[in-house]
Design a protein around this nucleic acid. Structure first.
Lengths: 197, 197
DNA sequence: CGCCGAGTTGAACTGAATCAAGAAACGTGG
DNA sequence: CCACGTTTCTTGATTCAGTTCAACTCGGCG
């Protein structure tokens, strides 16, 4: 678990992706952040925990899931350059209904809700970046509601493939299916060669 | 269309609901806000507009909808103390895919994205409030994804009734149905007395 | 009075779920 | 490197919630 990633570079990268941060803010954020490395699938947040951390995915991918009547339901998938966290716990400070699992050999940058609030007070830059991340997620979720309501299972799968062509190599089909809101069997039929016109 | 509502009082009320604002911030926000009054259903934002305003509902209710293949799809309903806006246009500064329609005799407080950015720069209070509103909406949307995926039409309708028992008196069934992601016919059957055990 | 929009009811249809078996891939220890 | 058990994925048959299409009811209003 040696850490080869330079935190400061990573944060500069985030700043470039989302919203510019001042040098001082970058250093401050670097000082409260930590890089986590995993070489295989690992659960990093469990149901019931107060999951007051957010994770930026430097490399690899992760999912948020919960158990509904014992069944594993993936409700968010995140890849390089995405953030992921157990949003209910993170924002409402309640025990998390979600698990978070890293799915590949991955590197994550982690920092806490508390530090992010402190940084938001101190650096207007940072608050703006945070708000951008949240807004982006909001719009994605809105899009997802539309897609669940009006697209067939097949369309949703094809859209996902367009956005993320390598997803089937990286994420087990069970998780993809439940993320799409369909059963594994249905996904398997959609993917079956017979089904391709 | 005389306006009896005191803007400052309304903003104090918002501040109490979401996150406290300083007196100076309240005054500043009041100076860039405006109260809109309607006495009957009215479309206040149309598809294609740059809808860079947000609306806080003082009294009444409103919906956001869009046309999908000519069909009217309600995708958000807002009541007293809720905010509503054409989120895609508001956050991304693109022409709005959504319409916004006020559904009853209503009063709204309106202010622009631009003013809200200015206020966010000037008052940390305000930025925090804005971020709270967005976060709350994010969590609601997430809940909605879960509900569409795992609840039956009937359960979704009953949940809506629990949260908003008067909704059927205030919002036409067509809009309720499409908000729930079901057809008017299905909603009608769910509501039919025969269906109650 | 007759029309019109909103809601209801009925019958047939369909996309996806469920239940049940089996095949393929995968990893672990002998 | 192979035999095994486990997990992941596929395929088939059946069922079901909700859609679609079509006809009908009802209440308001010009």
């Amino acid at each position: 678990m040696v850490n080869h990633t330079d935190i400061k570079e990573t944060i500069k990268h985030i700043s470039g992706l989302y919203s510019p941060l001042s040098e001082a803010c970058i250093l401050d954020l670097a000082s409260v952040s930590k890089v986590l490395s995993f070489d295989k699938p690992t659960i990093i947040v469990r149901e019931g925990q107060f999951a007051n951390k957010t994770y930026f995915i430097i490399k690899g991918c992760a999912r948020a899931f919960y158990l509904k009547d014992g069944k594993d339901i993936t409700d968010w998938l995140a890849f390089e350059n995405d953030f992921i966290s157990a949003i209910n716990s993170f924002f409402l400070d309640i025990p998390s209904p979600h698990y978070i699992e890293v799915l590949e050999a991955s590197e994550l940058l982690e920092f806490s809700r508390e530090d992010s609030l402190i940084l938001s007070d101190k650096y207007h830059d940072f608050e703006r970046l945070a708000s951008k991340v949240i807004t982006r997620t909001l719009l994605q979720l809105q899009q997802r509601v539309v897609s669940i309501q009006f697209e067939t299972a097949q369309q949703r799968y094809e859209n996902l493939l367009n956005i993320r062509p390598d997803i089937t190599q990286r994420v087990p089909l069970t998780h993809i299916a439940s993320f799409l809101g369909i059963t594994l069997e249905t996904l398997s039929r959609i993917r079956s060669p017979k089904n391709r016109i």
